[in-house]
Amino acid sequence: IRKQWHEDITQDLRNHLVHKLVQAIFPTPDPAALKDRRMENLVAYARKVEGDMYESANNRAEYYHLLAEKIYKIQKELEEKRRT
């Protein structure tokens, strides 16, 4: 379902936000690492998460909020795993 606010969101912005999700899960300073085949699954997962939020959000603010919440949860989980 195409929503009115979707018209304001460019593909570049969506790609940028997918990249932010990927960085939250696997922070790497090396952009070449993103071309690694093992990263493809991670990028696919991040695209799916972003797509789900894009579809479920009712406006741009909610879209950003859902993504920020997801990134926060991912970082929290990773922190907890590092501690144990």
Rank of each mutant, 00 (worst) to 15 (best):
R2F: 10
K3M: 05
K3E: 07
K3S: 09
K3H: 06
Q4F: 01
Q4C: 04
Q4K: 13
W5M: 02
W5S: 08
W5D: 07
H6C: 00
H6Y: 05
H6Q: 14
E7Y: 05
E7P: 04
E7T: 06
D8E: 10
D8Y: 04
D8M: 05
D8F: 06
I9R: 00
I9M: 10
T10Q: 01
T10C: 01
Q11E: 11
D12P: 01
D12N: 03
L13F: 01
L13T: 13
R14A: 00
R14G: 04
R14I: 00
N15H: 11
H16C: 03
H16S: 12
H16N: 07
H16T: 10
L17T: 15
L17H: 15
V18R: 01
V18L: 03
H19P: 04
H19R: 10
H19M: 12
K20R: 09
L21W: 00
L21F: 05
L21G: 02
L21Y: 00
V22D: 01
V22I: 12
V22W: 00
V22F: 02
V22G: 02
V22C: 03
V22Q: 10
Q23M: 08
Q23L: 07
Q23K: 08
Q23F: 00
A24K: 00
A24S: 09
A24T: 05
I25N: 07
I25A: 13
I25P: 04
I25E: 04
I25M: 15
F26R: 14
F26Y: 09
P27R: 10
P27M: 07
T28S: 09
P29A: 15
D30R: 07
D30V: 08
D30N: 14
P31V: 14
P31I: 14
P31N: 14
A32H: 07
A32M: 12
A32V: 11
A33Y: 12
A33I: 08
A33L: 09
A33V: 07
A33M: 14
L34M: 14
L34G: 13
K35H: 08
K35M: 09
D36N: 08
D36W: 07
D36C: 05
R37M: 05
R37V: 09
R38S: 12
M39F: 12
E40G: 06
E40W: 04
L42F: 08
L42G: 04
V43T: 07
V43C: 07
V43E: 08
Y45E: 07
Y45F: 08
A46R: 02
R47S: 08
R47Y: 02
R47E: 07
K48H: 01
K48P: 01
K48F: 00
V49P: 03
V49L: 10
E50A: 01
G51R: 13
D52N: 09
D52Y: 01
D52E: 13
M53A: 10
Y54Q: 02
Y54I: 02
Y54K: 06
E55G: 01
E55K: 08
E55Y: 09
E55D: 12
S56Q: 15
S56A: 13
S56P: 05
N58C: 06
N59I: 00
R60H: 06
A61V: 10
A61E: 15
A61F: 03
E62L: 02
E62W: 04
E62R: 02
E62K: 04
E62Q: 03
Y63M: 00
Y63E: 02
H65C: 04
H65F: 03
L66Y: 01
L66A: 08
L67F: 11
L67D: 05
A68Y: 14
A68N: 15
A68D: 15
E69S: 06
K70A: 08
I71D: 00
Y72A: 15
Y72G: 14
K73E: 13
K73A: 12
K73F: 05
K73C: 11
I74K: 14
I74C: 11
I74Q: 03
I74W: 09
Q75W: 00
Q75N: 03
K76E: 13
K76T: 12
E77N: 10
E77D: 12
E77S: 11
E77Q: 10
L78C: 12
L78V: 13
E79Y: 01
E79P: 14
E79K: 05
E80G: 11
E80R: 06
E80D: 10
E80Q: 08
K81G: 10
K81I: 05
K81P: 06
R82M: 07
R82V: 07
R83G: 13
T84P: 14
T84C: 12
T84N: 13
T84Y: 06
T84K: 09
